[in-house]
Amino acid sequence: MKIRNLTDFASGLLYVIVGVCAAYIASGYTMGTAANMGTGFFPFWLGVFLAAIGVAVCASSVLSGAAREKLASWNWKSLLWVSVSILVFALLFEDAGMVLSIFALVLVSSLASREFRWTGAIANACFLNVVCYSAFVWLLNIPLRVWPDLWF
């Protein structure tokens, strides 16, 4: 047996894993009966169904008629910087306020680009601060912390 379509095989595998986990966790909830569905009834069967689809997707990826396909390569650099920038923003936002978090988000996420330049990123952050302040605080009147507490 040879896996011809690796992309499909990996997706099928993912479906099986997610499905089995979902069904397993759901089996720990009150199941009830069809007439009186408990907490776990619907998700349990969804999980089983998902796992079954996963098996079918895996199976079709080894069939002789399946298109040959390798796994696509990942762009780890962009993935890393973009996700880290959002995490940093989430960490900072409520305590350090909007201005600093926007600086952090823009500077870190800009690292993901091949054309990164400090001056450009800083200018962009300043500009976005102005836009966000006018849009969210001034126009929409949404109560957001703008600066950290200890400064003002």
Partner: peptide
């Protein structure tokens, strides 16, 4: 980065 900022806020 602008899209990320608007999404996050």
């Amino acid at each position: 980065p602008a899209i990320l900022v608007f999404c996050s806020i």
